[in-house]
Amino acid sequence: MQDILAYASSFATWSRGPAYAARLAGALDASLTGLYVSPSPLALAPTYETPELMTYVLEGIHELVESASAAAPAFVRWAGEHGAKKAAWQVAEGDLPSVLGHIGNWHDLLVLERTPVPEESAAELGRIALSVEIPCLIVPPEGTPSPTPECIAVAWNGSPEAIRAIHAARPLLARAGRVVVLSGTPRKALTEIDWKPQFDLDVYLRRHGVRAEERRLLASDEEAGQALLAAAAEVDAGLLVMGAYGRTRFSEWFFGGATRHVLSHADIPVVMRH
């Protein structure tokens, strides 16, 4: 994780998400990019409106982008005060998930924050997680979580999403004093490929210097999210690593599942990867 991206919903002040990202960048000696996204003019003014209204909207967007761009020195200074010694500031126009998906191409991790309105925030976070090709770290709306927690919980069911999430979180796992693998019901990937022997998570982690302990997690699909958060709390984990959308992405998002529950209710940071 050498390049961390933090989405900032404001350019006047910076909140929990960017602050956590700055502390994490400092701990990992990584570079931090703060990003503010202005809405696209086309999204604000339908094409059937008058030219005068379009001109007014375009001028307003132009002033907003100029003001946001001018915040660069202040953000770099603020990020440095929070630990990030290598920081930059970007401003873009467009649909938020599309912008994050594009700029994510040159970053290793996207840091987002959950708002205090769980369901609305979870829906937007889920939309973003489906649009980007990099891991997402979701910061809860309360508390001051450590960017390098002593204990990290890992959700494991053998799915490709879980493997990708663990692979992405390796730099954090290597720094933890304790890693606890929460092993649920194995989920076979929908593929014709059959590995022999099967992927061994413990061997993989040991190869990368991570010694983990395992705890069985017995819960139905409907209770998996709640069980994951309860088990993470029992081991006093300061971070949860999990794959997102372990079933078909459509069915899990719109009909419940562990991903949606964790996005809505986690009180610790969560690294997710779909």
Rank of each mutant, 00 (worst) to 15 (best):
G126W: 06
R127P: 02
I128W: 06
L130W: 02
L130A: 09
S131E: 14
S131W: 06
V132C: 04
E133N: 09
I134W: 00
I134Q: 02
P135C: 07
C136G: 07
C136Q: 10
L137E: 09
I138G: 07
V139P: 12
V139Q: 01
P140S: 10
P140C: 14
E142P: 04
G143K: 11
T144Q: 12
T144S: 10
T144E: 14
P145H: 05
S146V: 12
S146K: 01
P147R: 05
P147D: 05
P149Y: 02
E150A: 13
E150G: 14
C151N: 14
I152T: 12
I152K: 03
A153S: 14
V154H: 02
V154Q: 01
A155Q: 03
A155E: 14
N157P: 10
G158M: 01
P160G: 14
E161V: 10
I163L: 11
R164N: 13
A165T: 04
A165H: 04
I166L: 08
H167A: 15
A169S: 11
R170Y: 04
P171H: 02
P171S: 08
L172E: 11
L173N: 12
L173E: 03
A174M: 08
A174N: 04
A174Y: 01
A174T: 05
R175Q: 14
A176F: 03
A176R: 00
A176E: 06
V181C: 11
G184C: 10
G184R: 00
T185P: 03
T185V: 13
P186S: 13
P186K: 00
R187W: 08
R187F: 06
T191M: 05
T191I: 07
T191H: 09
I193L: 02
I193A: 03
I193P: 04
D194F: 08
D194C: 09
W195S: 12
W195F: 06
W195A: 10
W195Y: 07
W195C: 04
P197M: 03
P197A: 06
F199Q: 00
F199K: 07
D200N: 15
D200T: 00
D200W: 07
L201W: 04
D202G: 07
Y204Q: 11
Y204W: 14
R206P: 07
R206H: 12
R207C: 00
R207T: 01
R207L: 07
R207N: 13
H208R: 15
H208L: 15
H208I: 02
H208Y: 09
G209C: 13
G209V: 04
V210T: 13
V210D: 08
V210R: 07
E213H: 12
E214I: 06
R215V: 05
R215T: 02
R215W: 09
R215G: 08
R216W: 05
R216Y: 04
L217K: 01
L217D: 10
L218K: 12
S220Q: 15
S220L: 10
D221E: 09
E222S: 15
E222A: 15
E222F: 12
E223F: 03
E223V: 10
E223R: 09
A224D: 00
G225K: 11
G225I: 06
Q226D: 08
Q226V: 05
L228G: 04
A230L: 14
A230D: 09
A231K: 14
A231L: 06
A231P: 01
A231R: 09
A232Q: 08
A233D: 13
E234M: 08
V235C: 09
V235W: 00
